[in-house]
Design a protein around this nucleic acid. Structure first.
Lengths: 131, 131
DNA sequence: GATCTTATTGATAATGATTCTCGCTTTTAC
DNA sequence: GTAAAAGCGAGAATCATTATCAATAAGATC
């Protein structure tokens, strides 16, 4: 029997709690933040589940400039993020016009299998008014 | 606290060696790689100088998916990178048409001071042929 | 429901990249 | 030349993340 089972995934309270916490939030959260919030869930478990959820495409990983990785429960499909650099609010951008740009440039330089990665960083309305 | 340091920058052999090594390379290099290459320069010094050079805009920092930061001596001005995910070759892209896209979206969502960050990741011609 | 297999958990150690510390060495100004 | 301060280097310290491993619990089977 093919032991190469596509890695079965069991349902656990911990993972449910993590996904739930992410769903309730408009911001992206780090493993530490989630662990602080759900102190019944071990830190290693938070990291493990975030990694798997991201791998399964159920959540998105967002790299912050300082190096830490935050995660967010996004809707499916290709999209980019508009992130408030002050409060961390994330807006999903589903109208992506970068594929053309990427493909054209890839062809010009002989690259294949090109994918693009892009993010917009700014200050949201609320934060701009507050200062 | 902001990391900006308006102090004077002195000329040193070590920094010159670092810049020189970067100039001679088409790829982006990590602090470790530079330290291995220039074993007369201490690791901390490599990090210090890379940080400052990037801050001063003399080199570009490129974040790899695995979390490490690589640096490259780029030409001046706003540009993006087309990176070979196999050999690390970097092509500078100076024709950026993303400003419009960013501004439009920022306006729509009430964001101000928006800047974009984008990279193309693919396989270069040489690497594609080799496999 | 009892039992077995094994994914999952969690406390902690380990890792890897980067930054800090601090005494010593150069640059640069005078 | 001299002296103040930027810069250096070796190693300690930090920070986010990953690995270890015994104990636990999910899902299948009887």
């Amino acid at each position: 029997m093919p032991t190469s089972n596509p890695t079965t995934r069991r349902k656990t309270e911990q993972r449910a709690a993590i996904v739930d916490a992410l769903r309730k939030n408009d911001r992206a959260m780090t493993a530490q933040e989630l662990h602080d919030l759900l102190d019944s869930v071990g830190l290693a478990t938070v990291y493990r589940n975030l990694g798997r959820l991201a791998e399964d495409g159920e959540i998105d990983a967002i790299r912050r400039p300082n190096g830490e990785t935050a995660y967010r429960a996004c809707t499916a499909g290709h999209h980019h993020h508009l992130i408030c650099r002050n409060c961390g609010l994330v807006v999903e951008l589903h109208d992506c016009s970068l594929d053309d740009w990427g493909r054209k440039i890839a062809d010009k330089h002989g690259f294949v299998g090109v994918e693009h990665q892009a993010e917009l960083l700014g200050t949201c309305e609320k934060c701009a008014n507050r200062s």
